[in-house]
Write a protein that binds this DNA or RNA. Structure first.
Lengths: 231, 231
DNA sequence: TGATGTGAAGCGGTTCACAGCC
DNA sequence: GGCTGTGAACCGCTTCACATCA
């Protein structure tokens, strides 16, 4: 247990561990070792122990980790013991799909509303989610205790939307617009750029040697072994 | 110019550079320096020079890079001079939204078809895209020269779908199911896990010190400066 | 002079290896 | 004996600094 800065790679893995622990709970297991977890993700067990040790000594030497206890700890660390309210800005195809996607996951995220500037859309309801006027964002965000915003508008509008959202006091934003955004540094911005992901696949296909270069070295001796990608 | 292994971080940035170069072309500029590019993304200019130098000596000392030339080079490197045909597996909300997503249609990626196992959906057309029976995937993939698959099915079915797709000879797969997948190492798998991204935002919100820890150090002296996130 | 291309240094994350504890 | 927690080694990506060249 140290109070260093925690990298985002670590917190991402915590999400993965938590998901797995939830599975293990339903399977009825009581304890799990770092090695047992590691094998599920093709991760190094020391990595897992280190990730966890940033936050406390959750394990028992000679035994491993008590699954329910660890799950509860990770839930708390990730701030998932409280409900999060999500606003989705942009009621186009992507926005409405996301509204539905998040609605189906039985996690602690619920969609509070869709927001758009198009007066024809405002007032409609999609999958139980109302479309509000983006002009009223600040008021509705306050009223409904929205704490997360998802930007699903075309790239040219994204910066403007981000500023409105930040102005309303939202501190966590997920952006799907394929454009770099500037933001005050007390706001956490996470961009998911599908274009980059696609083009990265294209690059791979364009390589004459069609093999997965990332894994070339580590697999030179054990061929055809199935891979689990890292997170 | 060396023939080292290229990291995915580099190829992701190539996508970003290319997008920017396309903008610069429409703005009518002729040349751009690595420093000029760097300022657009808050990247280090040496990073950009290094990324480009992996593939050739595209620059001119004392001048910079000729924009159109560099754009053409990057297009070729990323394999974007040829058309890619995309299959989307899973005709649920997310799958149909992705089929319509302009990001997929705008560039050199076109959606060849949606695939599902639900007989009620098969044969329908959504936004000009037909829904086929997943059972016929291999045949249709061959017929329509599909080279990229997008997995948008619920997590429990993802591994099975991946195997069918790989069996049909697809070498590039983008996965939206929140689950770790195993794949032969000649197939490139890229997972976009929206749950992890959301939980990472939740972690940030749960921190008592609500500031963006990633940037704490580098901004101790220049406060309130707007941030551009890295790719 | 001005900007590239690149070896070397720096830095952060991963893996090793083992002491410590149950 | 078994497994955790962790310093140290390792590795890869980023940044610096400068030789190089138009």
């Amino acid at each position: 247990m140290k109070s260093e800065k925690i990298s985002e790679l670590t917190t991402n893995r915590l999400s993965v561990y938590l998901r797995c622990l939830n599975d293990l709970v339903t399977e009825g297991a009581k304890t799990v070792s770092s090695d047992g977890l590691a094998k599920r993700f093709h991760l190094n067990s020391a990595q897992i122990r280190k990730d966890l040790a940033y936050f406390g000594e959750f394990g028992v030497r000679g035994v491993g980790y008590y699954i329910e206890n660890l799950r509860d700890q990770l839930t708390k660390i990730l701030g998932l013991e409280k409900e999060h309210r999500v606003a989705i800005i942009g009621a186009g195809r992507l926005g409405t799909a996301l509204a539905d996607y998040y609605g189906f996951t039985q996690t602690n995220f619920s969609v509070a509303g869709l927001f758009d500037a198009d007066s024809k859309k405002i007032g409609q309801t999609i999958g139980g989610v109302e479309i509000f006027d983006i002009k009223n964002f600040a008021d509705i965000a306050k009223r409904d205790k929205i704490d997360v915003a998802v930007i699903a508008v075309p790239a040219p509008f994204a910066q403007n939307v981000l500023e409105q959202v930040a102005e309303a006091g939202i501190k966590a934003v997920m952006n799907f617009a394929p454009t770099p955004l500037r933001v005050e540094n007390d706001v956490k911005l996470k961009t998911v750029d599908l274009t980059i992901s696609l083009e990265s696949l294209s690059y791979f296909l364009a390589q004459p040697n069609g093999s997965n270069s990332k894994n070339l070295k580590s697999n030179s001796n054990r061929r055809r072994i199935k891979q689990v990608e890292k997170v």
